[in-house]
């Protein structure tokens, strides 16, 4: 696949039929389930918050499930993940235990981070998931070190680094993509463009058509895909990861998607219209894959129920888990 690094790139179109054949319907039905588990997790998170059962805030990824599932599916065991504050979906798609995630979300000792991290800082270091990040663009410089480390160890690992459209306007983005480029680091930079940096629309925050065009400035490959098309995300990220594994350096992949919910729990969404939200909801990434697979409504409902049951079990596990003991408050600052 030849990707343009010219100023006007076009949205990449995958060959759906070929991908379905290659991946097989069984695996793709799993993806429908995975995306539904993410959505059910987010809906439960919102529900728990509304009922006052969690404190703090959260950033829901409903509507963006295809980015998480497509990108994770394109990576291999042993690869690294760095992601962002709207990261529940990435973490789940990476193969994390939904019970330990829910326990972390509820601040329990059994959670991935012993209840110290919470929604914005879930990591699963054993699976090379190096963590979500509460700072916009905060994980991007770290990817440079992970990439260097892989290169020094001469393994075939790749670091998938996911960030949002807002992060692409941080200075750290510039420093890091340049360093990754000059050293040909095995990193896939996946910009999850959900159209808004909190309230700032991409149309106002950028004077370019696609964020992937910035790849040209670093001398790396760039491509924009429909982020609500899980097969497109998979295809682009897989190709980018293969390039990285072959020593061809980093790639900037932009996935166009949309956040259905507000930025966080304090968002009244005064910056966008209901019609706009509805328009994007009509492009539901999960329904799209189900439709491609010609799933019956009954089959789909069964999957949704299965996902919801997994989340209910996770909530039960988390609720039954102990709170961190106050006597352990000082632990974990220093190694």
């Amino acid at each position: 696949m030849e990707w343009t690094t010219l100023v006007e790139s076009e949205i990449f179109q995958p060959d759906h039929r070929q991908l379905i054949e290659e991946l097989g319907e069984t695996r793709l039905r799993e993806w429908v389930l995975e995306m539904n588990i993410i959505r059910a997790f987010e809906e439960k998170a919102e529900d728990l918050f509304a009922r006052g059962l969690v404190h703090g805030t959260m950033h829901l990824s409903i509507g963006q499930e295809a980015v998480a599932v497509g990108a994770s599916a394109a990576m291999e065991d042993g690869d690294y993940l760095l992601n962002h504050h709207r990261g529940h979906g990435h973490c789940l798609a990476w193969g994390s235990d939904v019970r330990l995630m829910m326990a972390e979300f509820l601040g329990k000792e059994t959670g991935y981070c012993r209840g110290r991290g919470g929604s914005m800082h879930i990591a699963n270091v054993e699976m090379n998931n190096l963590g979500a990040n509460g700072i916009v663009g905060g994980g991007i410089p770290i990817s440079v070190g992970v990439g260097l480390s892989i290169k020094k160890r001469k393994t075939r690992q790749v670091c998938l680094t996911i960030f949002g459209d807002g992060a692409a306007n941080e200075g750290a983005f510039h420093e890091s993509l340049n360093m990754a480029s000059i050293w040909d680091l095995p990193v896939v930079y996946l910009c999850e463009n959900n159209q808004y940096a909190m309230s700032m629309p991409v149309q106002k925050a950028f004077n370019i058509r696609y964020i992937s065009q910035r790849a040209a400035a670093y001398g790396i490959a760039g491509v924009t895909v429909d982020g609500n098309d899980v097969l497109a995300v998979y295809d682009a990220v897989r190709t980018a990861a293969q390039r990285a594994r072959n020593g061809e350096g980093p790639t900037l992949v932009e996935a166009l998607t949309y956040r259905w919910k507000g930025h966080s729990k304090s968002d009244r969404q005064a910056y966008r219209t209901r019609d706009e939200v509805k328009e994007w909801q009509a492009r539901d990434p999960i329904h799209r894959l189900a439709h491609l697979l010609e799933m019956s409504e009954a089959e789909y409902e069964e999957i949704v129920k299965k996902a919801q049951a997994a989340i209910e079990e996770a909530v039960e596990f988390a609720n039954a888990s102990p709170e961190p003991d106050l006597s352990t408050i000082m632990e974990g600052v220093y190694a």
Binding site: Y80, V125, L130, I140, P141, I142, S143, V144, G145, V146, G147, L148, S149, I150, K152, R153, C159, G171, A172, E175, S176, N178, M179, I182
Partner: peptide, 23 residues
């Protein structure tokens, strides 16, 4: 002995990422 561009956030990030993964 890696010479870097003038990128202090990048240098710090490179240290963190490499440290997290065994260096």
């Amino acid at each position: 002995v890696i010479d870097t561009p003038i990128s202090e956030a990048g240098i710090a990030g490179a240290c963190i990422g490499a440290a997290l993964t065994g260096f």
